[in-house]
Amino acid sequence: MTHERKTIPITLSIGIDAYQPGDKTYHDILKRVDRALYQAKENGKNQILAKPYSEIPHSD
Rank of each mutant, 00 (worst) to 15 (best):
S59Y: 13
T2A: 06
A50H: 13
I29H: 01
T11I: 04
P9Q: 12
S54G: 10
L12S: 10
I56F: 02
H27P: 06
S13K: 11
R35H: 01
T11Y: 04
Q39P: 00
P21A: 14
Y19L: 14
V33P: 06
A36Y: 00
K51G: 01
A36T: 02
I48Q: 09
M1H: 08
R35G: 02
E42A: 15
I8W: 08
P52G: 05
P9C: 09
N46S: 11
P52C: 06
R32F: 10
K51R: 13
D60V: 14
K41G: 04
D23L: 06
N43Y: 15
S59E: 14
N43W: 13
K51C: 10
K41E: 04
Y53C: 11
T25E: 04
A40Q: 01
Q47T: 06
A36W: 05
Q20L: 15
D17E: 07
Q20N: 15
K31G: 09
Y19W: 15
Q20D: 15
I14G: 00
E4T: 00
H27S: 14
H3E: 06
Y26G: 12
D34R: 11
K45M: 08
L49S: 04
A18H: 04
I16H: 02
K24A: 15
T2Q: 08
I48D: 05
D17C: 13
P21S: 12
